[in-house]
Nucleic acid binder design. Structure first.
Lengths: 409, 409
DNA sequence: TCATTTATTTCATATGTCTAATTAAATGAG
DNA sequence: CTCATTTAATTAGACATATGAAATAAATGA
């Protein structure tokens, strides 16, 4: 059985019942007070007083109850509560190779706008990034009748090594500078709370909020794009390691002295799975037309494989085997309830074929219990941006709830 | 820098300041109230009232302050507090292949007795295990002038797949039965609180309490005995996975279609590192005398390698390379602050040679920050038993502190 | 209309924590 | 020896949070 956790969305319950109650309402979408009490083990009396505060603050509202079937019709009817979407609006930005994607969400998590723009350069200096961000955000908000100042927070996703709690970028392929306190800069530029994280973690957060990870306390997200990334959720929280550079799934070694990786080492998983790795193999095999872009080449290669070309097929099969091995190692170490394979290139089905999953299961330590579930998600940059927005939402929620403690009832 | 955590020993601080204060006293061994206040950010007033309770309960006592040098001599002198060792006594049992080891500790964690007995059988049925445990524990306690009823709790370490929170054994090589609620049985037999865990986790706990893991919040312990095990500490807590079968480091794959493992799969790390794997190689190479026990053979093989025999040397080198690769993968995924290599067979230095550690570092994702520290510990079954006792101590501590909340001041 | 049922609220109370003020125990200057 | 000074620990009063028990609210069905 999966392992549902009360406090999904990583709100820290130790700060008291308010977080717990609020996150329960958010997780359940609509829920009556008495159900909150039951689920959180907080007394009904306390639930009443906490929800009263939340309603007074405008964070939560009552809503007529869904006439759900199969329910006892006697006694005073329950009144459902839900998060009031209008109370806060957040934006999330995902910077990828050649474009930036913006998602604007209300406080429930419903999308209220999106926007995309090509990147003017592949590498910014920080001032450039800040002013570009502001400009993009201005356009994005205007496109749905808002201003930047209507937002309560902004989440930003970058590739690279990032100390998320501090909002500090050790290194990012998209930045000229190293070791930058990007959060401080953006907070000043935008005059808003800003939250920054590694983009792989943001996919994990998107899954946690909007995808298959809802109400699952331990799961892992693997993404294959230009590189191979991983996000780890343990006990409802993103696990980040001690130096902020954990979860480098793409650079786990699957072969001693194996294929050369762009990181300079040998035998990395990425060196067998990433686009450049597949193309390298194909080039050696001379199956490709020299005129195409790498994107096109990859599509062509895939088509050949599907059409039955043995060489092309072998290339994907080899990649699939390595992938199965890498995944199995994750399972053997983490024993997660769920593995989510997510990314745009998910169309290269060979990697996600049942066959690969089956290979993976073969390589997992055999116990009485069933192997973890594997689910596949074809998500593009927009979902990553929503993950960034969700990250901002967590931060904004914390701030909003903390404010209540201040001016208590 | 390492990452010291306030709440080592995995006491859950969300249950309030009492746990935090107590675990601080335990972690610091002896500490004045004002230092507790500073470290925990709890006000001095609260520290006073909490410590007063703890003293009244007999869990803590005042002790004249160490005349530590370099300290201001003005003002009212601090009074140190320490855990009162006599308040509770716990025992830990580690069942290994052919013997059981018992450690008896006071509430501070100081050893007050130990005992060892050969196992009458390599596989018990549960009733047999229960009565054997009781018998062993009786002798062990008597040997230091105690009785079983003087204990406040017992920790038990077994190999196998164990749901520690529930005290449920899914499978253990030492038990004939599968899926046994061992805790209930032992609790009834011994009339004491009993805590059961996988033995690899217990080494991790021993390191956390008595070894290199003190005050480190994220670290990993790798043990090489007959098999290869791993214990993971994240955020001060043992990570157990969702099915209780995580951390199967020995069965992570380091080679696709590689060497055959006793688990039936191919390419497991264990199939390159464990005694049987080394001996298998040696047998093929015919370097060994057929008359010896496997223990003796291994020692002989090691001696040959040290003496310069190329074949023997190669065997250890290959094992070392695989080990380095496995370790590097752990680092790439977890990014722990510290890796502890622990076990009795640590004498096979080839595996723990600087060279292997250096190989590992080469395989780790390169970032600005230094690679995690690696430390080596040569520990025998006694330390594992102490880990089991420490686990019991955590449980007993929780019970004792909860009791205070009941009959409040 | 009213007894019954179930959900929610009110109220008195308990707990845990904090700040500010007070007391305790030392040192060192006169 | 006395007393101002310094630092540690305690006490008192205030406040926030949570709870159980009792009261109230809103429905159903006899």
């Amino acid at each position: 059985m999966l392992n549902p956790s009360k406090n999904a969305h990583s709100l820290d319950p130790r700060q008291g019942g308010r977080e717990l109650v609020f996150s329960t309402i958010r997780a359940r979408e609509r829920v009556a007070r008495i159900d909150i009490a039951q689920e959180t083990k907080i007394s009904a009396a306390t639930v009443t007083s906490i929800t009263a505060e939340l309603i007074a603050e405008g964070l939560v509202e009552e809503t007529p109850r869904d006439p759900s079937a199969g329910e006892l019709k006697r006694g005073r009817p329950r009144v459902d509560l839900k998060v009031r979407g209008a109370s806060h609006i957040v934006a999330g930005l995902k910077f990828s190779n050649n474009k930036v994607t913006v998602a604007i969400l209300d406080f429930v998590g419903n999308p209220i706008g999106e926007y995309e723009r090509r990147m003017p350069t592949s590498q910014f200096d920080i001032e450039g990034l800040a002013s570009f961000t502001k400009d993009v955000l201005e356009t994005a908000t205007q496109s749905c009748g808002l201003q930047i100042s209507d937002l309560s927070g902004v989440g930003v996703g970058l590739a690279g090594i990032i100390d998320a709690p501090k909002g500090f970028v050790h290194w990012s392929p998209q930045l000229k500078n190293r070791n930058v306190d990007l959060r401080s800069l953006l907070t000043k530029t935008l005059d808003l709370p800003v939250f920054i994280d590694n983009d792989a973690n943001l996919v994990a957060m998107a899954e946690q909020w909007f995808g298959y990870g809802r109400n699952i306390s331990d799961f892992i997200v693997v993404t294959i794009e230009h590189g191979v990334g991983m996000g780890i959720v343990i006990d409802g929280k993103i696990y980040r390691g001690t130096r902020g550079c954990g979860a480098e799934f793409g650079h786990t070694k699957v072969q001693l002295d194996g294929a050369l990786c762009r990181c300079g080492q040998r035998g990395c998983l990425e060196a067998y799975l990433a686009d450049y790795a597949l193309l390298r193999e194909a080039n050696i095999a001379n199956t490709l037309d020299e005129e195409e872009t790498s994107e096109e080449k990859l599509v062509a290669l895939f088509r050949e494989a599907k059409a039955g070309d043995e060489t092309a097929k072998l290339i994907f099969q080899q990649a699939g085997s390595m992938f199965a091995m890498g995944l199995a190692n994750i399972v053997n170490i983490f024993d997660p309830a769920l593995i989510i394979l997510s990314g745009e290139r998910m169309q290269f089905e060979y990697l996600y074929e049942d066959e690969v999953i089956e290979q993976m299961r073969q390589l997992v330590v055999q116990v009485d219990m069933p192997a973890p579930e594997v689910r596949i998600h074809t998500w593009g940059d927009l979902m990553w941006a929503r993950g960034a927005a969700a990250y901002a939402m967590e931060g904004v929620t914390k701030i909003a709830l903390k404010r209540i403690s201040g001016h208590a009832t």
